[in-house]
Design a protein around this nucleic acid. Structure first.
Lengths: 120, 120
DNA sequence: TAGATAAATTAGCCGTGTCTAACTTTTGAA
DNA sequence: TTCAAAAGTTAGACACGGCTAATTTATCTA
């Protein structure tokens, strides 16, 4: 959960300037109270900083986690695309797959990606 | 959960002749009461047939699901191995990845596998 | 075959992530 | 500037998947 949330929060801050519960709820297909509860868990975990009724900010730890997740996400998506999978499926499957990819496997994806690019 | 269970149950029936809660608990690193509870959920879902204190059997639906899962598992593992990932990591990661692989992606894995074999 | 051991179940607890209903705070428009 | 709509929160419920402790059933062995 935490990974998906910080990833999305980082995206929203970048594109919209701030992250709001209502947007998070829409993107995850979940109701607002669920977001409230999960954000407070993130806060308890030290990933997020926030006051009630205000926008959500990432702590340094949150920002670092978000960056790592986004990088991994990009690699997994690019790898799936390199196999000829369509963008929509690649995005959807990556969302699930990325949380189960070890460092070893992620590196193998990167390596395969380089091969496919050189031999494109 | 259901997928992992029927997959293992099918394996146990093949190798041991029957599937017993104690074996399932060991393989999943979980305590026996957890297995009891999950088996009864599987039964409620029509995937498993069984009487208390007896071995566990798959229904037709359970057998079909198990077969599909095992096939998918084999493909994912083989694909990871083809990327040069070590067996232990391939097995471990496949366990997590396989549940998030769409039919499209599975086919792409199979296709890539064929390519790597012909060009091995 | 009786009794000890192993296997399985039941009862009851916990954390996670979801929901609805009801309430509060913020905001924006008349 | 007020007040209605939108956004957010709180309270309380539920399913899932895990646990421990206690009990029951099955199995094996002396």
């Amino acid at each position: 959960m935490a990974e998906d949330y910080v990833e999305l929060i980082a995206e929203l801050i970048e594109s919209r300037g701030e992250a709001r519960p209502v947007e998070i709820a829409e993107r995850f297909g979940v109701k607002p109270p669920t977001v409230t509860k999960n954000i407070s868990r993130l806060k308890a975990a030290g990933l997020v900083r926030r006051e009630p009724y205000r926008a959500i900010f990432l702590t340094d730890a949150g920002r670092e986690l978000a960056e790592a997740c986004r990088r991994r996400h990009r690699i997994v998506v690019a790898f799936l695309l390199s196999l000829g999978i369509d963008e929509e499926t690649a995005e959807r499957d990556a969302e699930g797959i990325e949380h189960h990819v070890s460092t070893t496997t992620l590196e193998a994806f990167e390596h395969a990606l380089l091969q496919s690019q050189s031999g494109k």
